[in-house]
Design a binder for these strands. Sequence first.
RNA 1: GUGGGUAUAGCUCAGUUGGUUAGAGCGCUAGAUUGUGGCUCUAGAGGUCGUCGGUUCGAUUCCGAUUAUCCACCCCA
Length: 418
Amino acid sequence: MLTKGPKGTKDLLPQDSYKWHYVENIIKELCDSFGYKEIRTPVFEHTELFERGVGDTTDVVQKEMYTFEDKGNRSITLRPEGTASAARSYIENSLYADPQPIKMYYLISCYRYEKPQHGRLREFHQFGIEAFGSKRPSIDAEIISLAIELLNRLGIVNLDLNINSIGCPKCRKDYNDKLKVYLKDNLEKLCKTCHDRYEKNPMRILDCKSERCKEITQEAPVLLDSICDDCKEHFESVKSYLDGMNIRYNIDTGIVRGLDYYTRTVFEFISKDIGAQGTVCGGGRYDGLIEELGGPSTPGIGFGLGLERLLLTMEAQGIYIPKPEPFKIFIANLGIKADAKAQTLVQELRKEGVSAEKDHMGKSLKAQMKYANKLGVHYTMVLGDDEINSGKAALKDMQTGETQEILIDELLDVLKMI
RNA sequence: GUGGGUAUAGCUCAGUUGGUUAGAGCGCUAGAUUGUGGCUCUAGAGGUCGUCGGUUCGAUUCCGAUUAUCCACCCCA
């Protein structure tokens, strides 16, 4: 137990961290060019924020939160997603008083008590963006286009973009009533899960995979056909902006996001390459959220993108991630005096921005060379008594095997020249 | 929360129809004439065969439980 991380967690090991840095750096550049600035909020929040924001009937809130009481008897929860915190901060810091829209992004860890499987962990990582203050459909399209651009820059292909509109709270209530009337006669024929869904979230029944439920819902009214004129117009406009940007999408009238705050535009990016948990990115509009949390009535839209799932997709598609640059030079040494000199030299090189390494294991010269080879260094230099006394040493190119004699004092200049 | 699979070396996996000292490849460490890597060869270290219990003269092997892990449902990123 002591030497085993908690269930559903995964260490990122030193030899793999460059993969995450690669993706994170591309994300940062991308957000920069789109004008989204980073926000950092705490890992934990008051439990009530998620109950109110995400919705206390959702699975996430009802059975997946890491909630505990702190020593001051406050109920605290490890964030299960990022939007609620961003919204809280927007209100708390009066960002609504600044010129709108407020555009932000975050790279965070999230926590949900779930049963782990492929593409699903208890601690997972999200890249998310949020735009507060604009109700116009062009911002919906911009948010989607940012995700598209990220996938393009990473070289990911074969992700389906599905979009839908789930209307405003008013059209959704009307629709739910309509749907319940339709389903009422067949209530007993639905699977157990859907039977439960009938009261809780009838729209989810449309998404059920059981054949019987599919049959029953085949003729059910479609939400997209039932939304109000304003919502319809908004959706049409989003689509035409996407068309204008050459973004291909499917309209999936079955998309029902599992968090309560969503309104109007909702969308998902699905990967077929990573098993059952294929939703790499999911998001949508949340025009009621800020007000629900006690702020001024403010529209907003954003998405969350699962970094583990993104990396899994890249791996499945065989996308190459550039490996970090190896050391420029390894300075091997023999004897106490040479070791001290090597230590000094390495420090001087590093100070000047030249990556350098030496032995710290007391290895034999041969073993040091082997080690240097394994590190993939460009050059090696051997220091022994002879070199210390003469002030000259052989600089060896590990690719060609060629050596050239140089003055030890000029090592930095020589390395900077090649 | 429900269902199914798996558990032998650091990693990937053989294997024992129940029987003395449990194997391979890779990796790691050391060596193949004096102070030079890659290729090759040799040697070494490393496992209470996930844990507990049962059957048995004897269990790593059969049975049960438990834990971990993987996959799917559910849910979502």
